[in-house]
Nucleic acid binder design. Structure first.
Lengths: 341, 341
DNA sequence: TTGAAAGCGTTACCAT
DNA sequence: ATGGTAACGCTTTCAA
């Protein structure tokens, strides 16, 4: 066993041990603050490490402990990482990053869902945002025993306790109730033709709610980022017969497109038409009028997901899915609620 | 040496070797497509690996080869990862992610600039965006021999060839020239009080350009994300004496704030006031009028940075800084240039 | 062409 | 309280 410390190489724990005149194992214990070593030797070892500029090799540490100290965040794969164009995912990324730092974990970004991504294979666990209905890569992660936590329920694993979810039905209803409370009697939903669970679930919630309150339903479709499509579709609707007095938009772009259409037609918002969204985003905040919406709090969702994943990695028992309550953000695109409801 | 394959454990290369009746080393060679092994044994080994569901342990691989297959992206630390609120950084992240995938590398996000981030220590190299003037962590990375590539020059390492840069002076001048070509005779710069190199460099370029063309200079300041501050400052300017006929805004928010101020004062854009920005962003594209700006092409910058970092990790010689040309995006907030210039 | 064995740097166990 | 040493899973050299 070579125990020389050629210069040029990075110092290893062996160098530190020799410098401090202790054994390799003791150096390891001392550096990690084990109570196996005397306070005095601990100090000596730390000083030696400092002198040598020693930093633990986390790869070697990982091999030995079986943990890399990395978690991965997998974004939905509608063409790769470009989903970051949506503020929701950026916020989730921010939340995950913050929580990872707090937990002394590194965060690797898992872009599109491919075969062998270096990130996934190195990570101790993976957070999957908006798991697709039948995605082979998530399935494989699970089969290989990688700890997985999802944000949003995994359609192929109903009732999975390792998930952070929102009560989408409840949230959707709360916004519908809010619109109705300020006078809406004909609410149209602007959804998408993408078969994502998010859209389908909200459409279902809308229909069941409308059924209960005996309201006619109409669902418009526009691509998730297709502002102009939403604008055109809304324009048709507003100029057609039986125009709505309120719009509920499932995406930021459809909300803005709807607002633009109303303004094109000279309809006052909220006086002539109320508009609300089901996710928040900068264009909604900055709009004129600013648009009322439900905020899913993606930062909190991601933070909760990291904590859940850490628990799962530690081998803890699941405590059921974590539900993050969002909140309704009142802005100018909806009329105030009269006291009598 | 234990060579049993208890079920429950993940299969190792030893299990594969035994399954294929070859030695450990041969299995390794076969799996990685070395030409040391017969085509026939290669197939057999691959099949064995397939059967067992074997995946290489990249931590062990990393320990042996000294490479983790990870690169880190360090975002500037104005309060952590929140810089992702700016589209520029999100775009850079997208570009880096794309290039990392293409190079079969994992991308870890290095949030704020702290002591021992798991991400940095595991990575084979680090990309630093907008290196701060005197940041201890970047300095330490360098001292420890971590390959570093910066996007934007590192003020503490002038002339570093391992950098992806934009010709900020030239870009700033091109926009100023453009404004002047369409009639601007008094251009005011909206900068920031943050002491970042980006702001300082552009202020200097503005002053030297104005000196050359004998134009009076005025520099306004507003915080990087302070739209209302920019709006108020611009309003003062527009209602004061000697109001400008053009505005050059260094941030997205200051450009929008300026536009709002103009509209508040009833000044037509671009007829009564031209406005241009020096970075692109959604609010500029979606504005009414949409705002002309210089696009730094952060996606291309990040892609170039990843390639440069890969070269540096491979031990190649530097080939001088990589300059990414952005481009001027003509939109509605500037008047057309008359043919005679 | 293949097998055997020596590390890579660390942690954890068994002695002392 | 500390030292010695065997793994961890892989790649790579040295023999055969």
């Amino acid at each position: 066993m070579r125990v020389t410390s050629e210069d040029g190489r990075k110092p290893t724990i062996i160098d530190v041990a020799r410098e401090a005149s202790v054994s390799q194992g003791t150096a390891s214990d001392a550096l990690r603050g084990s109570d196996r070593v005397t306070e005095e030797t601990r100090k000596r070892v730390k000083r030696a490490a400092e002198n040598l500029g020693y930093r633990v090799n986390r790869v070697a540490q990982g091999l030995r402990t079986g943990q890399s100290g990395l978690i991965a965040l997998m974004l939905p794969s509608a063409g790769g990482v470009e989903m970051l164009a949506h503020e929701y995912y950026v916020s989730a990324l921010i939340g995950a990053s913050r929580a990872a730092v707090a937990g002394d974990l590194g965060l690797v970004l898992l872009p599109e869902i491919d075969g062998d991504s270096t990130g996934a294979e190195l990570a101790d666990g993976v957070i999957v945002i908006d798991p697709p209905r039948r995605d082979p890569s998530v399935k494989r992660l699970r089969k290989e025993g990688t700890p997985v936590v999802t944000i949003g329920a995994d359609p192929s694993l109903p009732g999975d306790p390792w998930a952070v979810i929102a009560d989408n039905e409840e949230n959707c209803r709360s916004v519908l109730d809010r619109l109705r409370a300020s006078g809406a009697r004909r609410i149209v939903l602007i959804s998408s033709d993408e078969p994502w669970g998010w859209f389908l679930g909200n459409e279902a919630a809308y229909r069941s709610w409308a059924n209960e309150v005996e309201m006619v339903t109409t669902v418009l479709s526009a691509g998730p980022g297709d502002r102009d499509g939403a604008r055109a579709a809304t324009a048709d609707l507003l100029t057609g017969e039986d125009p709505p007095d309120a719009l509920l938009a499932l995406t930021v772009d459809s909300a803005i497109g709807a607002l633009e259409a109303a303004q094109d037609e000279g309809i006052e918002v909220p006086e002539g038409l109320q508009i609300a969204g089901l996710v928040d985003g900068a264009p909604l905040r900055d709009g004129d009028p600013a648009i009322t919406c439900f905020d899913l709090d993606p930062v909190a969702q991601a933070e909760a997901a990291v904590k859940l994943l850490m628990a799962r990695i530690r081998g803890e028992e699941p405590s059921g899915p974590v539900v993050i309550d969002g909140r309704l953000i009142e802005r100018e695109s909806t009329r105030p609620v009269r006291d009598g409801g």
